[in-house]
Design a protein around this nucleic acid. Structure first.
Length: 272
DNA sequence: ATGTCGAACGAAGTTCGA
C-alpha cells in the first residue's frame, strides 16, 4: 500500500500535476491539503477515470482537505472531535482542516487503515490569536490520536499532512532566520511531540535524516533553488503502521518547474 | 524587486492568506 501526503496549494490549479504524480509513483492513496475549493467546484472526473474514489471537504477559498483512494474509501469524517473554531468570536466556524477516512481493506488485501489528512493552522505571528488557535488545534489532534489507541492499541492509524511545525532545528534552513517566528517555537514543538508521545512515530525521518531534508520551500526569495526549505509535512504512524512501514521518499522533483506547489509530496510504503 | 502564488471580487487591480 503506497500512501502519499501533499499540500497541493489549490486542487483546481494542479489537477494535471496530481494525476501525473499518482501515475508516476503508482500511489494508492493520497491525502491532500489546501485544496482551496468547495467540493462542488472540483472537477473530479480525471481522478475517477483513474480509478480513485475521492472525499473532499472545503468551505471556501481557504484551507480544504481531501483524500483520494483506489483501494477503498469509507467512514469519512469531516472534522476532528473537539477542535477549536476560528475566528475565536461567536461567529467562528470549524475550518476545513481535517478529513478522516478508512482506506484499504478492499478485497482482503490488508486491514483498513484510519487515515487523517491534516492541515494544521499556520499560527501567523507568535503574538497573533492564530498562534493560540494552532496550539489548541494540535491538542485536539493529540486527544483524537490518544482516543484511537485507547480503543485499540493495535489500530492502524496514520496522521498525515501539513503540520506547519518544524520539530527540530535542522528542519529549517536557518534558525537565525526563524528567530521570533512561528513553526519553530518550543510550545509548537511540544504540541507536536505530544502527538508523537501518544504513540505516533515520524515514519520518514529515520530513513531520511536531516539536515537539509525539506518538504516545503517558500515561493518567495528563490527559496527552492537556494535550497532554503522547511520540513513541515509528516506521516505519523501508530505502532501497527510502524510495523507495516517499508520505505518512503520525498518527491523533490514535484517542486520543480512552472506551476509547482510550494510543498513536495511525501510518499510512504506500507505492507500489512 | 519582499526575486511568489492562488482565489475572491468583478472586470483591472487590490486584498487576504501563506
Amino acid at each position: 500500500m503506497r500512501i502519499a501526503t501533499w499540500n497541493i496549494n489549490s486542487l483546481r490549479a494542479r489537477t494535471d500535476r496530481l494525476l501525473a504524480l499518482l501515475e508516476r509513483h503508482e500511489i494508492d492513496v493520497i491525502a491532500l491539503q489546501e485544496i482551496k475549493a468547495k467540493p462542488e467546484q472540483l472537477d473530479l472526473s480525471g481522478l475517477e477515470a483513474a480509478g480513485y474514489e475521492v472525499a473532499a471537504h472545503g468551505l471556501n477559498q481557504w484551507n480544504g482537505v481531501a483524500i483520494a483512494s483506489r483501494i477503498g474509501l469509507s467512514d469519512v469524517h469531516t472534522q476532528l472531535p473537539d477542535v477549536p473554531t476560528w475566528p475565536e468570536e461567536e461567529d467562528g466556524v470549524v475550518e476545513a482542516r481535517a478529513l478522516g477516512a478508512l482506506v484499504g481493506g478492499a478485497e482482503g488485501t490488508s486491514p483498513g487503515l484510519r487515515l487523517w489528512s491534516l492541515y494544521i493552522p499556520n499560527g501567523r505571528e507568535i503574538d497573533h490569536p492564530h498562534y493560540g488557535y494552532k496550539l489548541r488545534w494540535l491538542e485536539a489532534l493529540r486527544a483524537e490520536g490518544a482516543r484511537e489507541l485507547a480503543a485499540d492499541a493495535q489500530a492502524p492509524v496514520l496522521l498525515t499532512g501539513d503540520f506547519n511545525v518544524a520539530p527540530e532545528d535542522e528542519d529549517v534552513w536557518s534558525m537565525e532566520f526563524f528567530e521570533g517566528k512561528t513553526h519553530v517555537t518550543e510550545p509548537e514543538r511540544a504540541a507536536f511531540r505530544a502527538v508523537v508521545d501518544e504513540g505516533y512515530a515520524d515514519l520518514v525521518r529515520p530513513d531520511h535524516p536531516g539536515p537539509q531534508v525539506y518538504t516545503y520551500w517558500d515561493y518567495q526569495q528563490l527559496r527552492f533553488p537556494k535550497k532554503e526549505g522547511m520540513r513541515i509535512d509528516f506521516a505519523l504512524g501508530s505502532p501497527a503502521v510502524q510495523n507495516a512501514y517499508r520505505a518512503s521518499f520525498i518527491d523533490r522533483e514535484e517542486r520543480k518547474g512552472k506551476g509547482a506547489s510550494d510543498h513536495a509530496p511525501v510518499v510512504v510504503d506500507l505492507e500489512f
